[in-house]
Amino acid sequence: MIVIKSAAARKVIKVLVPALLIPGVIAAGAYLFRGRHYYAVTLAVAMLSLMLFAAGFERKKTGTRRLIIVSVMVALSVAGRFIPFFKPITALTVITGVYLGGEAGFLCGSMAAVISNFYFGQGPWTPFQMFSWGLIGLFAGLLGGMLKKSRALIVMYGAVSGVLYSFVMDIWTVLWYDKGFDPALYFAALGTALPHTLLYTASNAVFLWLCARPFGEKLERVKIKYGV
């Protein structure tokens, strides 16, 4: 495995990966596979972006308390399944992003994906789940100011991101199956996932409606009390 011990090497990766590797991978994929096998390219790009993010995070000085709070949020989103009908990963990722910042949101989403896959099975889909849940958290952080103020907006964001998550994951399903992108197959995949998507979206919205405020207050309180 790649062992990145020195900080300097990590810095190099941080510059090198976006500048060379990602376009390089896309170009090589287009050349080698003559436009087929998009899924291999998308998988490589997803993994490189995750690596990039890890390198950036590793470089920063992050307090121990902050690290632990993120892992608490990750654990809560996986363990939160004990409430009937709730699958709180998306909702908690959104809350983490809004109240602790985009980076924490990305971490919470992507780590929750890895951990819940310890229970549900890892696979080539893991990097995609990490990536899409991570992005949900990241964007929640970027829109944090707006989402914090309005209950309706945060519920809407949760619902939309649940639907988008399903759309993105089905793109991957179709790419994997078909090696190309066939809209008919894509809509078939979306159709079979529809009941699940609807339940998921509704549960996100309800969870955020009920819990965003109190949850946020608790996080804010801890932030003030301990100066995280």
Binding site: S71, V72, V74, A75, L76, V78, A79, A112, I115, F118
Partner: peptide
Amino acid sequence: ILSMALRYI
């Protein structure tokens, strides 16, 4: 983060 979260669950 991963190992802490795994222990917390």
